[in-house]
Design a protein around this nucleic acid. Structure first.
Lengths: 344, 344
DNA sequence: GATTCAATTGCAAACGTTTGCGTAATTTTT
DNA sequence: AAAAATTACGCAAACGTTTGCAATTGAATC
């Protein structure tokens, strides 16, 4: 660490100025060809590695992106990271990844640290608590100092920001409509954590679809869950224990669906005949559950790629705010595919 | 970005030296209390944020860790990251996470970039290709410049390195032994990608257990897979189509098991009666599959935590190399739990 | 009123690199 | 052979911050 060889060290060795070394190593045209060869050979031999920290200081550009996400334990988030890296690695960038665990204080702490580290931009998916408390001052402040902030999935401003999101409303609508088409009469919804944009949007899409088809929304058929299978099991138990039982469930994500499937099986209901099931995210395991799970794909990796490209376009001087809304796609599998004529 | 206010800016404003501002902002004892208050208030008002890049340059310490992993799409890897952050966030560190996609060239590229960025240490899980080609020069070089390198899971040196791993051999042994105890006579193994330490170790554990119980190892019962459910399905199809069919399967990880379960069901075999199944990693969904999946937990998060603590101990001057081998734990669930007396 | 002491502040170097400008040395042109 | 042009290198500043040391100020002591 401390013994890293620097340009100054090499300059001392050759009794010349650091600028000469710099020019030699960077193939500057105004350098003697022999000097260059000699210096490069020596640098290679002693394992010289450029210190990009000094360059960051000089150029006001760290070639690093901050990524703030509430969690990293789901397919969606890791796919976003894969998408970001796919575009940004070739561009020479590194990613500072910060996981907030949905905690507002941590989000604030991380954001400040990233700003202090002078990352070139921050890609953020807001924590749940940041919504609940409407504590967005730290974000506003970052935007005010004209640090590029790009929202992924979860945003709080209606406009005037850069963001890349999926049309969760539409995805939920498609899923619910599919259940309607499959002949479901009582469609339940496993509603994601309150205050999170995607939860709300998916609920709205669900509600809008019910309305379109003249179904009344029943509070008893809407249960609150976390993004975990355990939570899905619990909520489904409630649904199946109550008088009004659903014959279709649209859940906020696939993990919740896995939890639901477990309970549905245990109670000896058949999927999809008794209860049809649609999830969200299209996780890799969705096709490998007890029953292949129908799910709404939200192009998770594409979100990362698009975010990265949005950032690069800002680097190239694109000034206006950009908003990308990705199209969700319903993937129909066995968990919801039934011959609905048999039910009519 | 360029308009970030610096200590020099504030110094100009107050017509004093930058050192005074620095002392005021850092609550240095040798500063007038009123000056300090005034300066701090002003700094707050204009949103001054320390530039840690200059500090990194000064202190030869970036408060950043490099993390190089072959993939980020499995529970194990994300849990490691969670473990790292749990310890390193409170210590003021940021994580530069690099995903190599098992590609040696990318691993090398990322490693150089991290070195250039003067991260304080690098936690690495080697790519598959790095094994195949024995191209470890980049690692050796990094170690030679006395940059702390900590291996996670996948290492290449036998000693003289810092590493945190799970006892994969033992985990595999436990899993296989459990299948033996459950009365399985023909235990198959779905072998992970070649050249990866954990694949080899798990295979060794499987083989050692068979040997202990006097079973001969049958090449027909060992199939090569990738770490995906699709691959698990394919290999299981092979197993079930051949003459010699298994009555127990130990798979290199849980995703592979999900793929196996799918095929086993399709072919109308019963789990665990006809075929008992044990996986590895104990992913969150393992308990929520078609049949609750038995699995070997390898304390993924703990690996991250232990790695972080190993790093911190090196910071505090601990010089020797440390090796932590974490204990795996067999979690028995329905997929392997059968009344084996019925089979004897 | 001269001396000592403490309290504040300024100065300058350092971290590693790049780059515009100046300058010496060498070559080309007239 | 003198003038002009070219080549190759050095100098110094800059990026933002900290810190040991020197300097200044003012008050307190003799």
């Amino acid at each position: 660490m401390g013994n890293a060889v620097s340009i100054k060290d090499i300059a001392r060795k050759f009794k010349c100025a650091p600028s000469t070394i710099s020019r030699a190593l960077n193939d500057h045209p105004m350098i003697n060809i022999d000097t260059r060869r000699t210096i490069q050979e020596y640098a290679n031999r002693v394992g010289y590695q450029k210190n990009t920290i000094s360059l960051s200081l000089l150029n006001h550009c760290s070639k690093t992106l901050g990524v703030i996400i509430p969690s990293i334990s789901h397919y969606h988030e890791t796919a976003i990271i894969e998408g970001l890296e796919a575009i940004l690695q070739p561009a020479g960038y590194l990613l500072n990844i910060c996981v907030t665990n949905e905690c507002h204080a941590l989000e604030k702490e991380y954001l400040n640290r990233l700003v202090a580290n002078r990352v070139d931009a921050i890609c953020i998916s807001l924590s749940q608590e940041t919504f609940d408390h409407s504590l967005n001052e730290h974000i506003d402040q970052a935007i005010r100092r004209s640090l590029p902030i790009i929202f992924m999935d979860r945003f709080y401003h209606e406009s005037d920001v850069d963001r890349v999101i999926t049309d969760d409303f539409k995805g939920a609508f498609l899923a619910t409509e599919h259940l309607v088409h499959m002949g479901c009469q009582k469609i339940a919804h496993l509603h994601g954590p309150k205050g999170i944009t995607v939860s709300q949007q998916r609920f709205q899409g669900y509600a809008a679809c019910l309305k379109k088809y003249g179904r009344s929304m029943d509070d008893e058929l809407v249960k609150q869950v976390m993004f975990s299978p355990e939570s899905g099991s619990e909520a489904t138990k409630c649904l199946l224990d109550q008088e009004k039982k659903p014959d279709g469930i649209f859940a906020v994500n696939d993990e919740v669906c896995f939890g639901a499937m477990k309970v549905i099986h245990e109670k000896n209901y058949k999927i999809p005949e008794d209860i049809a099931l649609v999830g969200f995210d299209n996780i890799p395991l969705s096709a490998f559950g007890p029953i292949a799970l129908s799910s709404v794909s939200r192009q998770s990796k594409k979100i990362g790629e698009q975010t990265a490209q949005l950032f690069l376009s800002k680097l190239n001087g694109f000034l206006g705010h950009q908003q990308f809304i990705l199209e969700p796609e319903l993937i129909v599998r066995a968990s919801s595919l039934r011959n609905h004529f048999s039910k009519i």
